[in-house]
Amino acid sequence: MRDFTASHEALSLNTATVRKQWSLDRIIDECAKRNIRAISPWRDQVASVGLKETAQRLRETGIVLSGYCRGGFYTAPDKQGLLAALDDNRRAIDEAKTLDAPCLVLVVGALPGALIGAASYKDLGRARQEVADGIAASLEYARNVGMPLAIEPLHPMQAAERACINTLEHALDICDALDPARTGMLGVALDLYHVWWDPKLEQQIQRAGRDRLLAYHVCDWLTPTRDLLNDRGMMGDGVIELKKCRSWVEAAGYSGFAEVEIFSEQWWNRPGEMVLDTCIERHTTVV
């Protein structure tokens, strides 16, 4: 397993971690000051600065991407909605390519309308089929563009609203069905916040291997968790066995960035400088 204690060169920052404090251009500058070599930005943050402007700023600072957030949300109540989702994912793929991202992360979607408390239907099987069909269509376009897709399984508590793929095993089943040759164009984004609890986690990480492990996200699970979305913990403040999990990921062949992604009202209410400095410190001590 790699030694992180001497430097934070393997640290990437998911820009959601300080989205309430700073705009994306400021985030890039602050990362450059701290020699944070990689980020994973969100589409709305990129849009607020401008796609070409973001690409230029990344080139100027030498910062690369560890991923691009996000595509997905394939489910819809009707055919028109399904087609609109495919169009949006094509745009996301193009944006990821412009920014030279190594992958586009997919949060696949679930029961349409559930996020606002008005699900259009309750058939989770239908949602999962729409997701599989949507990924298949996006994969065809992604192959032409040369942009790998990374399915992110989300914790079961978000199965209704955000993602109906909830285990690494399920995500890999879809990868095997759609990309049996393991071409490197379809894999997973492994976010420990969502999968740390899975009794099959080590086994499925081994199954994924280097070809499927396209991104690796870290934070911590607090006890008690007070909010299902915005109460993630800083690494070391919760119960996830971070080093053990990283040992499994690296034993499977992953050698990329460990991307810090923290949705937290607590950390959003602290100065951005403090958040980044804490991320660096925890990355070298507990990740």
Rank of each mutant, 00 (worst) to 15 (best):
M1P: 13
L11V: 04
S12Q: 02
S12Y: 02
L13W: 05
K20C: 06
R26M: 12
I28R: 07
E30D: 12
E30Q: 15
K33N: 11
K33E: 15
I36P: 01
V46A: 09
G50N: 10
G50Q: 09
R57P: 00
L65N: 06
G71Y: 02
G72Q: 04
F73Q: 07
F73V: 08
K79G: 12
Q80F: 04
L82V: 13
L82P: 00
D87Y: 03
I93S: 07
E95C: 10
E95T: 13
L99R: 07
L104H: 09
V105G: 00
L111A: 05
A114I: 09
V131W: 01
G134N: 09
G146D: 10
I151H: 04
P156W: 10
Q158S: 11
A159N: 06
N166F: 01
T167I: 03
L168M: 04
A171P: 03
D173G: 05
D176I: 03
D179F: 07
G184C: 09
G184V: 07
V188H: 04
V195M: 09
P199C: 06
L201T: 04
R207H: 11
G209S: 06
R210C: 02
D211N: 12
R212V: 10
R212N: 10
L213I: 15
L213V: 13
A215E: 12
P224K: 08
D231L: 06
M234S: 07
D237M: 04
G238V: 09
G238C: 11
R246D: 05
S247E: 15
A251M: 07
A251Q: 14
G253T: 05
Y254W: 08
F257M: 14
A258D: 11
E259H: 00
E259I: 13
W268M: 09
P271D: 14
M274F: 11
E281Q: 14
V287P: 00
V287W: 15
